[in-house]
Design a protein around this nucleic acid. Sequence first.
DNA 1: TTCCGTGCAAAATGTTTGCAAGTCG
DNA 2: CGACTTGCAAACATTTTGCACGGAA
Lengths: 148, 148
Amino acid sequence: MDTLIDLAIQRLHTQGGRMTFQRRLILEALDCLGCHPTAEEVFAVVNQRDPSVNLSTIYRTLRWLEQEGLISARRFDESRRQERFDLVLPAEHHHFQCTTCKNVIEFDHPSIQVIKTQFAGVSGCQVQSASMMLYGLCPQCRQLRLAS
Amino acid sequence: MDTLIDLAIQRLHTQGGRMTFQRRLILEALDCLGCHPTAEEVFAVVNQRDPSVNLSTIYRTLRWLEQEGLISARRFDESRRQERFDLVLPAEHHHFQCTTCKNVIEFDHPSIQVIKTQFAGVSGCQVQSASMMLYGLCPQCRQLRLAS
DNA sequence: TTCCGTGCAAAATGTTTGCAAGTCG
DNA sequence: CGACTTGCAAACATTTTGCACGGAA
């Protein structure tokens, strides 16, 4: 099976890169954090295991992974400055964010493929990828709002 | 008819705000730039008419408009730092961006409503808005790529 | 005349870079 | 050995803020 770490090792080998202690920690942190951590969040986890790792190493590694197509930069909250890094491994997926608690739920929907195809047909564009965000209230926050 | 400027005036009146020279220039710049300008682009247009207007006034006004729901902040290119400001007036609309020339095409599609409704049904979330990005090659860049 | 809005400069934020020293193969 | 990586600190780009002054209502 191809975990993020396995894939990273493969890429490193084919391009003369090295699997360092720091990179391993960062990859493990990504795996453990799962969904969509910020660079700071990755840093916090890595830092706990080895406080000597520098934030710029986190950024360099995240950018490298992004360039390799293994993660992708995202911003759920458009006017937040901070990027989040989304593992692309599982498959193309989309996100709902609760406007109150900021929690994120992942989803997919067959119609997204239909939209891609039809837009391509109408516009003459070649569509390579799609990214959909829904915003609203999650069930919990909806309850709270109704109650008040 | 409700132009951006009319709406802004309404909001200002109901909250004791003032229509200043600077705000008028900024609103006119937004109208004239149309689609998705950056703060710098708005600044450039305003500056041409009155070089004494400060960039921080642009930001303050854009943030106020955002808060009023008259424009919304966006980032087409995820790892770009700069925000763009999208007029929300016309209607909910979505964007295709060419990964080569970075041009943006707006679109809408009925299935987006379907996705919103069905996701709400399955998840129990209340969906308030949606934002879809497609990425790929526009017809021109596609030609160029085929030719080479 | 009263606040609201502005210009200015300085701060803040999040990310990137240059470089010397360290390390992996 | 030699290229690839790192930590550090300084740079960077964009956006935000505090404050005293000026202007709309």
